[in-house]
Design a binder for these strands. Structure first.
Lengths: 219, 219
DNA sequence: GAGATAGCATACCGTTCGGTATCTTCAAGG
DNA sequence: CCTTGAAGATACCGAACGGTATGCTATCTC
């Protein structure tokens, strides 16, 4: 055992990094191995196929993401604070994942890769759907909390509004990536989310207060 | 001249079709040529590189799209009717573009391909941004019309709301594609758009009336 | 200490990639 | 009719692709 866990970890992290920069189909096994400082033999010792690496990488990425989400969704925050934490986390995620590369926004590569996968790449779609499902649970919990607090106007369908938020954020992130402008994301993220949530007038916040500053440090 | 225009047209159409099915990087030149019934020599006679084909294809696609958009945005419709036409067009586009393939939703491949392109593929990003810019104009015009008609609540930033719509729709389409469910799109498209627009109560329509049924026939 | 086995490296497989060089064919202009 | 040049066909290029076969080596078990 020349430290198998570490090798596997390195492959996963490298794969995630490279996929963030472009997408599944244009990232080669050789490239991943080279950047990870691992030979191809080692690669195929740990993963049966490139697609299997992708699946493992998406799970691995979710594990990290879950920690961040659990932190910002802590019951010690009010739903409104959780919302602000989330907005802040999304922004910080982009900064963290894009550090030292000449891109400002990354979006979620697992979501987009899955959304562009062909029919023949069912495994990739599956992994993306899995990630999707996880995210959705958290989103629903947030909206449910907001509704329970009486913050939302009307009597919205909690699951649907949660999906709305997700669709909007994903679309915005892709847009931001295309424009290569984090400011473009910042300009629309909060406002769009609040508009979709349709908060009661009393709860519409304007500024960008920072209720918690260490929410995304674990990234 | 063995009908060069037709060959070029065939290559463009085929490329569009294949890219809709997956994405730029995973569609090969050979595949395009084979399906178009054109040899690679002919391909590289018409296009310098694969990226140039992509650009030309995106322009070609926009030309078709523009016709549809001009039709549904005709001044003979009220802004509210235009909105309904747009919603309907989005749905019908998916059906048309996915016909006979085992996928129900396609999304916009030029947008997503651009959003996933690496740094080295600046041409692809450029083409996507170009498409983006065109779409935005139409979206802004729609929102402006709605606002001018006094349909919207408050005093929203027209450009921003137009962006919101676009982000939401793109995100929703990718989601729908991932889930391979047009019903998932149908379930959220209208409701989400209306929520983002924040119509005055009097103008919130519930059903799915069809103000014009021939809007998207030109597709 | 003698297997047994996990961890990994090297070399290489067949295929496909985007792209090119060269040739033929055919239609138009003189 | 004959030249000319665009349109297209064929063959091919080197590189990279995903993946495999095999062998070495370090570590664990007994």
């Amino acid at each position: 055992m020349r430290n198998a866990a570490e090798t596997r970890q390195k492959l996963l992290e490298t794969a995630i990094g490279l996929i963030w920069q472009s997408n599944y189909s244009s990232v080669g096994v050789n490239e991943i191995c080279k950047q990870a400082g691992v030979t191809k033999g080692a690669f195929y010792h740990h993963f049966e196929t490139k697609a299997d690496l992708f699946i493992a990488a998406s799970r691995h990425y979710w594990d990290r993401m879950k920690q961040d989400l659990d932190a910002i969704y802590s019951p010690s925050f009010t739903p409104l604070e959780q919302l602000e934490n989330l907005i802040q986390l999304i922004i910080e995620k982009q900064i963290n994942e894009c550090s030292s590369k000449d891109m400002e926004v990354a979006g979620c590569p697992f979501f987009t890769s899955g959304g562009q996968a062909g029919i023949d790449e069912e495994k990739i779609c599956q992994a993306a759907r899995e990630m999707e499902d996880h995210m959705q649970r958290y989103s629903v919990a947030l909206v449910r909390g907001l509704k329970a607090d009486g913050v939302l106007r009307g009597d919205p369908d909690v699951d649907q509004v949660a999906r709305f938020l997700h669709h909007f954020v994903q679309g915005l992130l892709i847009y931001g990536r295309l424009m290569n402008s984090l400011d473009a994301v910042r300009a629309d993220l909060r406002e769009g989310i609040y508009r979709l949530l349709d908060l009661k007038d009393a709860y519409r916040s304007e500024g960008s207060e920072q209720p918690v500053s260490s929410a995304a440090d674990a990234a």
